[in-house]
Simulated scan of single mutants.
Amino acid sequence: MARLRRPADQGHRDGVSIMKTPIIQFGTSRFLQAHADLFISDAMRAGQDLGPVAVVQTSGSAARAGRLAAFDGRPLPILVRGMENGETVERTEYTTCLVRGLSAADSWDEVERVFVEADHALSNTGDSGFQMPEDETIDDGVPVSFPAKLTKLLAARWRAGGKPLTLFPTELVTNNGVVLAGLCDGIARRSGLPDAFIAWMATDCVWANSLVDRIVSGALEPAGAVAEPYALWAIEKQERLVIPLTHPAVRPVDDLMVTARLKLLLLNLPHSCLAERWLADARPGDETVREMIADPAVRAWLDAIIDTEILPVFAAGGITEAPAYRATVLERFQNPFLDHRLSDIAMNHAAKKATRIGALTAFAAEAAPGHEMPTLTAIRDSGLKGLS
């Protein structure tokens, strides 16, 4: 596999060649390597001019030093395995856009330099990435949380006269762009940063809301991942937002709520239905989703719930892509390489089913008043609490 051609050097610092990386990424996750980073690599191979990526480790974990060192432009294998268009597939694709790895804890000055000259920022800092100490502010040191680190970097960019930045957070937080912008605004105000900077950050920079979806089921060393064929990066359109690449998995959408509802009600809710049946029938403790829906009785039961209780609400709401998404979900459930155990899905079952069935009930009240959901109502009221 040929290496991606690197851009021309931008100079030297302490004897080290310096290149411009138009995209700076916060987070070293396997998910990003098999998701956004792979899409960027595909786009660059297709001749799209968006530039390579510098990756910043925000956590300071020494355990990821080997992974960080692998971000040097080498092809990182992404083993794609699962069901696609009704057929079993197994192929290796390559992420080639990651050309630098930096630690925020060890190389803050260089992170700041790269950030000031970047065109776009991308992040996926994990489930706790937006969490921060109460009333956190920034000072001369390296901040603790990712939102505080980002605020300090944005302030450095503003002071250097840098142009406004477009930011693409992909953390699994509803309206992640709006939420992250709000966190950074609060940090800036508590830290006494200039009003002109706060206004620039809020009105000149662009904070994209997005939703990501792909099951990344395994790790390759020192970097790379095992992933299912299905992949989605839905980005909500807004004024002044320019998405820097085109790719089959990157989908600009008018309303991210539509995509969120599809995922919640046609992927997550059927998972909860299967968990309910698994608990109620006392099925084998190590049973997987693939094995369970291979049971004709279970498959017919789940199909009936989806076709008579869930899909009619989408139809009434004018969401025409729901049947196609349903077919994709059931194909994903049959992935022969993925052992998704019901014991994992049944964790915190009571809370999850209440949230998911409650969301469908609210959608039905809006789009299909009077629509009946007898099986889902029985699941909601069953009293089965699942595992904890």
Rank of each mutant, 00 (worst) to 15 (best):
G224S: 03
D295H: 06
T151S: 13
P248L: 01
A118C: 15
A121N: 08
G386M: 02
L4C: 13
R5K: 10
A297H: 11
V111I: 14
R3K: 03
I24N: 01
R283N: 04
M44W: 04
E110H: 14
D204H: 11
P336F: 03
V56C: 08
S17D: 10
D140H: 03
A36H: 10
D213S: 05
P270G: 07
F168W: 04
T170M: 03
T246F: 03
L265G: 06
T170H: 04
N268W: 00
A62K: 02
G161L: 05
E87W: 05
E171Q: 09
W301T: 08
P7F: 06
N209S: 15
W200C: 15
E287M: 12
E236N: 05
G126A: 11
S29R: 00
A249I: 00
A199L: 11
A322D: 05
P75W: 05
A62V: 08
A367Y: 12
A8Q: 13
A70P: 01
S128Y: 09
M132R: 13
T355F: 11
E276R: 07
F39T: 01
V178W: 09
M347L: 15
D255R: 01
D72A: 04
L32W: 02
S61E: 09
A365M: 10
T246A: 14
D37N: 07
E110Q: 15
A208E: 09
E309Q: 03
T166S: 15
E171V: 08
A280K: 08
A322L: 06
L32V: 10
L50I: 12
S343L: 07
P296W: 05
T377V: 08
A346I: 05
A121R: 12
L183A: 13
K152F: 03
A156M: 11
A223W: 03
V329F: 11
F26S: 07
S17P: 15
R81D: 00
D109F: 12
N268D: 02
V212L: 01
A367M: 14
F26A: 12
I235G: 07
T246D: 11
P336L: 13
A368Y: 02
V258Q: 06
L245E: 01
M347P: 12
T137Q: 04
D307E: 14
M257D: 14
L274I: 01
A368F: 11
R326H: 09
S61H: 12
R299D: 14
E291R: 06
H371V: 01
I187F: 02
G66L: 05
G182Q: 04
T92E: 07
W200D: 15
M257T: 14
Y230I: 00
V99P: 00
P143D: 04
V258A: 12
I23W: 00
W278S: 02
D37I: 04
